[in-house]
Design a protein around this nucleic acid. Structure first.
Lengths: 218, 218
DNA sequence: GTCTATAAACCGATAGAC
DNA sequence: GTCTATCGGTTTATAGAC
């Protein structure tokens, strides 16, 4: 493939990904994609065969990316944190804050997580693949971590605990517009998102029976 | 208006509401609505003028309903609970469990909350009205309650606390299919939803600095 | 008020010139 | 590979008979 071919394909994937992430598969037409990518309408079917195959392709760029959060990195670089309750609490705090930073801080280019959520909300045939290859490893890792901290808890409780991170993140990512109407856009800025991250971290630390770190104490 | 007119309009609103709640505005065609309501396609435009106006009408039936949760009822019927920390914790537990019961137990007829969430996820011009008239009163009441329990906390922290209830409920309501794929449908039954409700209640009680009730202790 | 038939616009996809 | 023009299908909405 020549460079210009890759340029066209990449421009289409980028434009399609951003649009699908914002408005969902049904809410985007091939004409909107072609216009945003500044390529001809026919190029979509020439390069990808169909709108649906282009949609699938937008996810292949996501699969190449890393994990959704940084639990395993922390455990590798700072294994000593696992030895004390306050260290364990610090791990949770860092994972939660890193997750929220990824979700919100670079919102200009982060259509990828929105795209994943759109697929979860309106599943297509590729949803099982997305869940199995991208979400499951992260999710099991997080639930396992909870069971290390609290061996007496059940696996269901570990799942409910791990889900809190996603539930909170998804809620603020997808409901920002109504929340801005509900409380005013000036109350939905970075300060509030930090408060949300802190609240989520406190919640998960307390549920694990750990002490609140000093930087999260009330 | 004659009875049969009301019958036709109500049948259309009911059918449209259920379909919109499940598949969103764009995912439902007027033909699907007419077929489900067992009326003629033309009746939609005769009685409502357009698909969008029918969509708006489905929300007017929601506005007539009561609150999203039962905090004020509990405070009226059992004001003595407010006097002790364990009573305050019991209030939170009851509000959370009632909210989850409403969301999941009667899933056959409870398309209304799903419809609200669909509108929040894909806002239309009526979103501000929905937020102001239906969500805001409940939301302010819940945040105010938190500030009664913890007067030293900020209003932002109260909002982040109140949001936990919605975030958890919305997540499990909208992401049930991917979660069933992720963990198996047999692990997503009523037992797990009770675990989720208990986890949410524990979380909000602990964040308010209250003791866990006996029926929520680990 | 209810129905059929159809208009007008949009959609995804394709054929064919270049 | 890129473009224009268009097909076949679906959509919302409407006109007109009954």
């Amino acid at each position: 493939m020549g460079e210009n071919v890759l340029d066209t394909k990449n421009a289409l994937i980028l434009a399609a990904g951003e649009l699908f992430a914002k408005q969902g598969f049904d809410g985007v037409s091939t004409r909107m994609i072609a216009e945003k990518a500044k390529v001809n309408l026919g190029a979509i079917h020439y390069h990808f065969g169909s709108k649906e195959k282009l949609y699938v392709e937008t996810f292949s760029t996501i699969a190449a990316e890393g994990k959704n959060f940084c639990l395993s990195e922390i455990l590798e670089t700072s294994p000593e944190l696992l030895k004390t309750p306050s260290g364990q609490a610090e791990i949770i705090r860092e994972v939660v804050f890193q997750f929220f930073r990824d979700l919100f801080e670079f919102s200009r280019r982060d259509w990828k997580k929105r795209l994943i959520i759109q697929e979860l909300l309106h599943p297509s045939p590729i949803m099982p693949t997305l869940v199995g290859k991208i979400l499951k490893p992260d999710n099991e890792e997080l639930a396992d971590f909870f069971l290390v901290l609290s061996p007496a808890k059940t696996r269901s409780e570990a799942y409910a605990w791990a889900d809190m991170l996603y539930a909170q993140g998804f809620f603020y990512l997808m409901a920002r517009e109504p929340l801005a109407v509900l409380r005013g856009a000036e109350n939905m800025g970075e300060d509030f998102l930090r408060t949300v991250a802190a609240t989520t971290a406190r919640s998960m630390i307390l549920l694990a029976g750990l002490p609140l770190p000093a930087n999260l104490a009330f």
